[in-house]
Amino acid sequence: MIEIKNVSKTFIVDGEKFDALKNVSLNIEDGDIYGIIGMSGAGKSTLVRTINMLERPSSGEIIIDGKNMNNLSAAQLRQERKNIAMIFQGFNLLMQRNVLKNISFPLELAGVKKAEAQKKALELLELVGLPDKAKAYPAQLSGGQQQRVAIARALATDPKILLCDEATSALDPKTTKSILSLIKEINQKYKITVVIITHQMSVVEDICDKVAILENGVVAEEGYVTKVFSQPQSEIAKHLVYPDYEGGSVVNADYGTLARIVLNGAVGTPLISKMTLDLNMLINLVSVSTREIGGVIYGNIEIGIEDKNAFEKIREYLKQYDGITIEEVR
C-alpha cells in the first residue's frame, strides 16, 4: 500500500514561495489502478514524484508497505526505487541504445548478468508486442512503440508499483487505448499497483478503479471512479465531468428553465423521446454527455424547458427510473 500522509511541497522561485502541494493525503491499495487527474499545474506530477522521492516533500510522509520513504539513506532509496517503476509522457528512452539494451538497462544497473538480462528483455519485448524491434533504435520507432518499450523497461526489475506520468498524453486516441489496455493487462497479470497521472478524463474512465481530483495542490475529491464521475461534488469535479458545466454552450437562448438530467446507472430506454411523448412536452436538447464506466452508463443531459412547472413534472416522471435524477441549472 502507498500511504501519502499530509504531504506538502513548497517551491521557492526567485525568493517567492509557491505551494505546489498542500497537505495531500491519499491511500493507494495494492493492485489498484489509481488515477490522479487535474488541470495543468494542479500538482499532479509533483505529487507522483514524491512517491519515489524524485521530489522530496517539504513536509508529510510517504509510506510504502509500511516503509517510510523519507528516512531512507541514498543507497536504501536507490534500492527501493527498483520496486517503483515510472513511465513518462516523453518516453525517455536512451537514444543511443537499441530497444533490447534499453529494456535491459535497469537490470544492468542492478548487476544482473548480461545473458540473463537479455533473456528477460526479450520476454518483455514479447509481452509488449514488439518482438521484432529488438535491434531498432528509439528514433526508429513511433511514439506508441516507444512507450511500449518504456513499459517493458519499467517492468524489467519486477516492480510492485508502476507510476505513469501522462504516459499517453503524447499519443493519438487509438494508440492511447492500446497502451492503456497493456497497462491494465500488466496490472492484472503481475498484480502491480498502478498510479496514473493524467488530464484526460477518458484515461481515468477507461482503466482506473479509483481517482483523486487535484486542484491547486489540494485533493478536491477522491474515491471510486463510478462514484466520483456520476455524482461529482466539488466544483472542479463538475468541471471535469460535465463538459458544458456553467452552461458554457448555452448562448443567449431563452429556454425559460435550464435543467440537467443526471444518469447514474444503465438506461435501456430512449429516455428523452419517451418522456416528451409521455408528458406531451416540448424539450430543447442543450447538451448530452454520457459515458460508460464498468458497463454502466453515467453522464448528463442538459435540457431547456418552459418553466418551473415543467421541471416538477419531469422530476415526478423520472422517479420511476433508478439512478436518474434531475437538477435545476438556472
Partner: peptide, 14 residues
C-alpha cells in the same frame, strides 16, 4: 535530455 537522467534516477541508478 534531463528527463532521461531523471528516468535513470527513478530506476535507482547511482
Amino acid at each position: 535530455n534531463p528527463n532521461i537522467i531523471e528516468t535513470a534516477q527513478s530506476m535507482g541508478a547511482s
